[in-house]
Structure formats: structure tokens, C-alpha cells
Design a protein around this nucleic acid. Structure first.
Length: 812
RNA sequence: GCCGCUGUGGCGAAACAGGCAGACGCAAGGGACUUAAAAUCCCUCGGGGGAGACUCCGUACCGGUUCAAAUCCGGUCAGCGGCACCA
């Protein structure tokens, strides 16, 4: 059988028949199976795409055969930096390269034989899509969830451009030119994801997601419960610090502000000004990555100013230091050298006071710095209180004096969404000299991305150089105005694509809420784990925000999530061009066919783990397919009347058949594809055994089992199974046929074998009738010759009988 | 440093929920068919000992709980992923 020809034949027929069209009239039986859409940068599908899409598609087909109306769309996350960088390097326009890459990938995806419904294809770089990305931006903007503020960005001093964090190398230099990267304040757009921090955290509890991913999101959101303490400077200025350890407040030896804190300039004394200014300049040169490194030596400068510790009235010096992060908490911290390692290091370096206020609860060693919870000492009326009580009590006491309040902080920051880049979705905002920031009226959307733009980096947004784009009229006052020159982070585009798919061609709205509320949430979402704290978090935020704006009636976009593992290069490293260990699926597909390749991916790896590529087993998959083919050919030659005569061999065959059905069904549900395939191989082996060993075959049962086998195989090898199905004159298309259902009665055996142990060592196997009770099993075991021999001279102390498993005889 | 995950034959991996470790397959070795090869089919295949029936050891390492541990508990080591001066 020529698998390549067969695959081509069926793909042609499926396309002609529109076999995989989603039937909207069956929406009540819908199953929305979604694979993370891909980024068309590499020009071709790689093994990773296959590993994501192939087995997922088999799952979708399995659900379809179970009677669900499966919606499995496909599309492209088409804006983004790689296409732009490629353009900068080669001069090929990002739109041209992207359109070309998409065409290639579409063809390859079709060769995969996925049941994707291409009528719902989405490409984020097309105006009919990004029009609605802009529309959603405006809804968030009007709701106060999108705003502009000054924020530090990574700035390459040589390229004169803003860099994303991932473009800054570990040593703080530019990924492209190697020049130093500094932090610079620029006005940027943000989404207020922090408004949803608490719900994003609590919502995780009810999601069927990998625990690991949920843990990462929890970590990322970083809830910490504590309080704020207000300090008054001698100048009269007030500021607050955030702390989770108010129980240590009596041990404050200094307070420390972030260098960017607005109070710094105001309170710094003339004597200290020069040192403070020098320190601030030095800080700006340090990259964010360096600054965040905990191994760095503490640095700082004294402002010359003092404030009063509200818990004990002590006079406390005010320092600045870059280990305090301006964007977290209040941008100011109390320095308790005795009970915090960082403060301890700082105090040691600058010779500041170190005063113990916590001792251990049980007298265990509590050398300073001692950061564990303990008992409060040197803390006035709080002496003797535990840290757990004190950290709340001290804040509450301060609250009553107007100098503090309980407060919860999150590590999560607002999402910076503006990019000074060309190949992205334009931000639909107009800046008017008279009216200020004005939203583009919805009737004027989309704000189209112009084609003819010089996108070579020179420090400003490329769109600034397009006068045709920039100049516009203010929708409010009609005066000349300028457009926002930035584009949106591509993660904005991908935060709502799963909402667009079911209503992909709606030109009146981003989506029809009625359709979306019926189609979502996504029932099974499959994609890489690397998106845990980005795409998967952003998409959840969008869903919640759009729900609150009244467009959606569900809280979470993805009910159930599976991460496929990563297929590494044969050398065990992540595949990369620079390492030269990239494996292309194409050569295997053109040699063995896409079904064989898909089946190999499903059998050779544990789906959620992945692992190094190794092609040594792929030929055996082809042999497996040929083995099945021989059975099918045999079956086509059989025309036996229904025959209920069942001997031992038939019972055994039917047992294997139904056991296979049961296990494959369970394994598919769990994405445990490798064991599902193993069970199918066992079934095939059993059919061969029956065929060769049984002289007087029940041909009806034999043929029936082969027909079931083909149905079981349909999700795994869609083309080849369709061919087998047609050879057997089964109804077309096979994926609309019912997946076999296990006949539990066939799994009931008259008798079964179980192992007998003496002192936990297996001595023999016995066969007992299936309905035996424990007593019967025990007596059969004890009367077995091998057991009598093994217990000779010993006294049986205890007999443990586990039906269907084993018997353990404890003898001394 | 913190959080999470993983560690099983020569290899990819199985083992539901404490109950026969290594299913299924690759590689390897042997055999049948063949003039020969390919294809196909059959057998062996964790390690040690034994002629053999058998027997001892074995799931990273050390200890514990249990009639019974790859699985549970405590500790150690190694690898992977994430976060990392978050107060």
C-alpha cells in the first residue's frame, strides 16, 4: 500500500466534501478543542508544531467519534518582532514574508490531515482581525483599564531604541549590537491587569490545569499580606512603607527609599545632595536585570534627612538604595537589620544600628540576622507576643493612631503593552493639542497599519516617520492632530483570538455574544508550558475584563489545559538553528507519510514530557500499519453470517477487543497516547495469534474485531483508517462513525490467575473461579503443592487476600 | 536562596488508587521459511549464582512505616523548569 497516495486521495476528498465543517445546528453538543496557534516565523512547520497539533487533532477526532460536534479551528499569530527583525536584516517587508510563511504553513497543516475547519481561520495581522483588537483596546480604555504613564524601559544606547526584556542579554548589553542597555523613562501604555490580581489568583483553584502552571501563576501574581506604616519626616513630609513583618517595627534602624522616589529630591540636605545625585545617575545605568540580582553587594546613599519611627518615637535616618524597587509596594522600606538579611547587609556596610526585637520561640539558635517568626522583645507593650500575632497587632495599633493600615500587595505589575515597533497592531488613540488623548471613534476602525514605512530602528517608533499615518483630524474638535505612533504587544492580539474563532468573519462586531457564550469556554486547550505567565495569564485577564463589560458570561477562557512536552534535538538540547540540531518533519513525511509520522510521535514519547528526538522506531510504525493492512485485506475476503458460537479462543479475543476499547478510551481522555497505541498493538498481536492458532475460526467475530480495530485507529491515523474503512465498506467519513464502546460483559472472565506469595515472595500462580470469595481463594492457595512445600515447617500467621491481585501468606 | 517537577533495563517508555516491576516497542542475539536476500513468522533479552527445578539482588542514595513500597514518610544527591533584593 502506498501511504502517500492514499493520504493525498483522502485529503482531496475531504476538502471537496468539506468533511470537517463545524455544524452550528449541533452547538449543544459542541466540544471546543484548541491548540495554541502558531507564529509564522520559521517559514515551515517544525517537529514541535507537529507534536502539538497532531496528537491534539487525534484527541479532537476521538471526541468527534464519541458524538461531539468538535470545533477545531486554526490560525496564525502573525504580528511580532521576528518578522520585523528578519525584515531589518533582509529588507523583505514583514507583511510579505508573513503572508508567504502563512501560505506555506497552511499547506503543511493540510498535509497533516487535521480536522481543522479552515472556514474559521484567523490571522491577527489582517485588518479584519486587528480592527477588533483595536475595538477591544478601546473598550478597556473607556473602562479605565488601559492608561498611559511614564515607565522605565530598556534602552539601547547605540541602536537608540527600546528593547523588550528578552532582547537584553544577561550581561546587560543589547542582543543585537552588544552596547550597554540603560533604563530610561518613557510614556507607555498599560493594561490594568492588577485590578484583577485577586480574581486571577483565586480563579486558579477551580481550573483543570497542570498544577505546575497554576503554581507558576500564583508565584507570578505574588500575593503578600501585610500593612503600611506611615512615617513623618522632620521636614513634615509623610511617606509610607509596606511590610509583612510589622512585628519587627521596633527594630527599625533606618528607612530606605527607592532612588526614583519623588520625595528624595525634596528631603535631601544640601550636604548630601551631590552624593545622592551621583548615586541616582549610577543607578540609571544599571540594567534592570543586574539591579534585580540578589547576589549584588548593597549600595546606597544617605539623604541627610531623618524621620520618626511611629511605634517608638525614635529618630531614624533616611537612605536611598536600589535594592528597593519603586514599582512595588510604596517604593519605600523600613530597614530592620536584625531580622532581614538584606537590611542586615546594608546596615553592616554603612555602619547602621542593629537592634534585636525578635527571639526564637523555643530557645533554638537565633543568631542575627534572624528572619524566622518568634517572640517579640524590646517592643514595648508588645513584648511576649508572637510574630504571627504581632504583625497584625502592630498595624492595627498604628491604624488607631492614624499611622498605618492593613494592606495586601501583589508582585504582579500592570502589563506594558506599547511597543516602539512597526509590525504590530496600531493603537487607536489620537493625540490632539487641544483635547489631549482622544479615542478613535469605533466607526473609524480599523486604524490601518501603513505598508510603506521605514522600519529601520533609529530610536523612535517607525510609524512616526509616516506622515500619511501620523497626521489626522481630532474627532472631537476637528483640528489637526497626531496618531499614537506605538503598536500593541503581540500578546494583546493573542489574548482574544479564541473568542474570534467561532465568529471569525463577523464584520459588525468582534464576536456575537450569543455565539461566544454558547461556544466557550474552550473545553480543551493544548500548548506549550512556556506561556504560563504570559499568554495564559493575559487571556484570563481579557476574559474577566470583557465579562465585566457585559460581553461574556463566563469567567475563565480555558476550562482544561494540557501542555505537550518539548521534542529536543537528537543531542538532548533544545532544537535551534545555531546548534544545528533541528529535525525537519518533512523528510519523514515524504518518506513514510503523515499518518505514520503522527503515530510515531504519539507512540514514541510520553506526550506531556517530550524528549530527545530519535527516529529509530519510525520504521516499526510503518510495519505496524502494514500488519494491520494484512488483517484488513483478510477481513475483506470474509463474508460470514452472524455466528454466536464462542469457544475459549473467541472469548479471549473478545476480551482483548473490549479491553482495548476500554483502555484506549481512557488513555485518549488522559492524553496518554503512547499507552493507547501500545494497547492497539496488543490487539493486533491478539488477532494474529487467533488467526494463526485457531483452526476452526469464528470468521464473523474475527471480521467484527478487525472492523472495530479500524474504528479504534481512526483518530490516530485518519487517512489510512479512512482507506481501511472504505475497503471494509464502512460508512464515510470514518470520523463521523461511532467510536467503539466497551462491552463490559466481555470483560467478565470465568476464572482468573493470581500470584501467591509466601512472606512477600512469589511462589506460584493459581487459577481461581471469578466469583470466589476470599475464603475460597485462601483455601485454594493453601492447598497448592508449591505453597505447602514453601510453608513446610512454618506456622501460617496471616493470609492476606487481595482479589484479582494476589495472596500473601505470612508464615514464621 | 525560594517554589514546582523528575530520577525505573543498552534505548523510548509502562505500572489505575500501596498489591506479580519492566506492558508496548526499538536495538541486540538465536531460529524457521528461502538457492540467497528482502519481507514475514517464532524464541531469548535487568544483573549475579546454579546443569537444573530454582535462588539471591535490583526502580538515584540512606533510613522508616507496612503482610506488601517505583508508589507513602524523613533525610541526601543529581537533573530540569520557573521566580529571584517583592520588604
Amino acid at each position: 500500500m502506498n501511504f502517500l497516495d492514499i493520504e493525498k486521495k483522502w485529503r482531496k476528498k475531504w476538502a471537496e466534501d468539506k468533511a470537517y465543517s463545524f455544524d452550528k445546528s449541533k452547538i449543544d453538543k459542541k466540544k471546543y478543542v484548541l491548540e495554541m496557534f502558531s507564529y509564522p516565523s520559521g517559514a515551515k512547520l517544525h517537529v514541535g508544531h507537529w507534536y502539538n497539533f497532531g496528537p491534539s487533532d487525534s484527541y479532537a477526532r476521538f471526541k468527534s467519534m464519541q458524538g461531539y460536534e468538535v470545533f477545531e479551528p486554526m490560525g496564525f499569530d502573525a504580528f511580532g518582532l521576528p518578522a520585523e527583525n528578519y525584515a531589518i536584516k533582509t529588507g523583505i517587508h514583514p507583511e510579505d514574508s508573513t503572508v508567504k510563511n502563512i501560505a506555506t504553513m497552511e499547506r503543511q497543516l493540510q498535509e497533516m490531515g487535521g480536522m481543522f475547519d479552515w472556514d474559521y481561520e484567523v490571522k491577527t495581522c489582517m485588518p479584519d482581525y486587528y480592527k477588533w483588537t483595536q475595538w477591544i483596546f478601546l473598550q478597556l480604555y473607556k473602562a479605565g483599564l488601559a492608561y498611559r504613564k511614564e515607565a522605565p524601559v530598556n534602552w539601547c544606547t547605540s541602536c537608540n531604541t527600546v528593547l523588550a526584556n528578552e532582547q537584553v542579554k544577561d550581561d546587560g548589553t543589547c542582543d543585537r549590537c552588544g552596547s550597554p542597555v540603560i533604563r530610561k523613562n518613557l510614556t507607555q501604555w498599560f493594561f490594568k491587569i492588577t485590578a484583577y490580581a485577586d480574581e486571577l489568583l483565586s480563579g486558579l483553584d477551580n481550573l483543570d490545569w497542570p498544577e505546575k502552571t497554576k503554581a507558576m501563576q500564583r508565584n507570578w501574581i505574588g500575593k503578600s499580606v501585610g500593612g503600611e506604616i506611615e512615617f513623618t519626616c522632620e521636614s513634615g513630609d509623610k511617606f509610607r512603607v509596606f511590610t509583612t513583618r510589622a512585628d519587627t517595627a521596633f527594630g527599625i534602624s533606618y528607612v530606605i527609599l527607592a532612588p526614583e522616589h519623588p520625595l528624595v529630591d525634596k528631603i535631601t540636605t544640601p550636604e548630601c545632595r551631590q552624593a545622592v545625585e551621583e548615586y541616582k545617575t549610577a543607578c540609571a545605568k544599571v540594567s534592570e536585570i543586574d539591579r534585580m540580582s540578589s547576589s549584588r553587594e548593597k549600595t546606597g546613599a544617605f539623604t541627610g534627612a531623618y524621620c520618626i519611627n511611629p511605634v517608638n518615637g525614635e529618630r531614624v535616618p533616611i537612605w536611598i538604595g536600589d535594592y528597593v524597587i519603586y514599582s512595588y509596594g510604596t517604593g519605600a522600606v523600613m530597614g530592620v537589620a536584625s531580622h532581614d538579611e538584606r537590611d542586615y547587609d546594608f546596615a553592616k556596610k554603612f555602619n547602621l544600628q542593629i537592634k534585636r526585637v525578635i527571639k526564637s520561640k523555643d530557645g533554638s539558635p537565633d543568631e542575627l540576622p534572624y528572619h524566622d517568626y518568634g517572640i517579640m522583645v524590646n517592643s514595648g507593650q508588645f513584648d511576649g507576643m508572637t510574630s504571627e500575632e504581632g504583625r497584625v497587632a502592630v498595624i492595627k495599633w498604628l491604624e488607631s493612631k492614624g499611622a498605618g493600615e492593613l494592606k495586601t500587595n501583589y508582585r504582579l505589575r500592570d502589563w506594558l503593552i506599547s511597543r516602539q515597533r512597526y509590525w504590530g497592531c496600531p493603537i487607536p488613540i489620537i493625540h490632539c493639542p487641544h483635547c489631549g488623548e482622544v479615542a478613535v471613534p469605533e466607526s473609524d476602525l480599523p486604524v490601518k497599519l501603513p505598508y510603506n514605512v521605514d522600519f529601520a530602528p533609529d530610536g523612535a517608533s517607525p510609524l512616526l516617520k509616516s506622515e500619511e499615518f501620523m497626521n489626522c483630524t481630532c474627532p472631537k474638535c476637528g483640528q489637526p492632530a497626531r496618531r499614537d505612533p506605538d503598536t500593541l504587544d503581540t500578546f494583546v492580539c493573542s489574548s482574544w483570538y479564541y473568542l474570534r474563532y467561532p465568529d471569525a468573519h463577523n464584520d459588525k462586531a468582534a464576536f456575537d455574544p450569543d455565539i461566544i457564550n454558547a461556544m466557550l469556554p474552550v473545553d480543551k486547550y493544548i500548548g506549550g508550558a512556556e506561556h504560563a505567565c504570559m499568554h495564559l495569564l493575559y487571556a484570563r485577564f481579557f476574559t474577566k475584563a470583557l465579562r465585566d463589560l457585559g460581553y461574556l458570561k463566563f469567567d475563565e477562557p480555558f476550562t482544561s489545559l494540557v501542555h505537550q512536552g518539548t521534542i529536543l534535538g537528537p543531542d538532548g538540547y533544545k532544537m535551534s538553528k545555531s546548534r544545528g540540531n533541528v529535525v525537519s518533519p518533512d523528510e519523514y513525511i515524504s518518506k513514510y507519510g503523515s499518518d505514520a509520522f503522527r503515530l510515531y510521535l504519539m507512540f514514541g514519547f510520553s506526550y506531556k514530557d517530550g524528549g530527545p528526538w530519535n527516529s529509530s522506531g519510525i520504521e516499526s510504525i510503518v510495519k505496524f500499519l502494514e500488519r494491520i493492512e494484512r488483517l484488513v485485506v483478510k477481513a475483506t475476503e470474509i463474508s460470514a453470517p452472524k455466528d454466536k458460537e464462542r469457544g475459549k479462543a473467541e472469548k479471549e479475543l473478545l476480551y482483548t477487543c473490549n479491553y482495548t476499547i476500554k483502555r484506549v478510551t481512557e488513555d485518549m481522555e488522559n492524553f496518554s497516547f503512547n499507552t493507547a497505541v501500545a494497547r492497539l498493538m496488543e490487539f493486533v498481536n491478539a488477532l494474529y495469534k487467533y488467526d494463526s492458532e485457531v483452526a476452526n475460526k469464528n470468521l464473523y467475530i474475527f471480521k467484527d474485531c478487525i472492523e472495530k480495530l479500524v474504528l479504534l485507529l481512526a483518530p490516530f491515523i485518519p487517512h489510512v483508517a479512512e482507506e481501511f474503512n472504505s475497503m471494509l465498506k464502512g460508512a464515510y467519513p470514518i470520523y463521523r462513525r461511532a467510536f467503539p464502546v466497551c462491552d463490559e460483559s466481555a470483560l467478565v472472565k470465568d476464572e482468573y490467575e493470581l500470584a501467591v506469595q509466601v512472606n512477600s515472595r512469589i511462589k506460584c500462580k493459581i487459577v481461581v473461579p471469578s466469583d470466589s470469595d476470599n475464603k475460597t481463594i485462601e483455601s485454594i492457595a493453601l492447598s497448592n503443592e508449591a505453597i505447602i512445600a514453601a510453608t513446610q515447617g512454618l506456622k501460617v500467621v496471616k493470609v492476606v487476600v487481595i482479589p484479582k491481585r494476589l495472596v500473601n501468606i505470612v508464615a514464621k
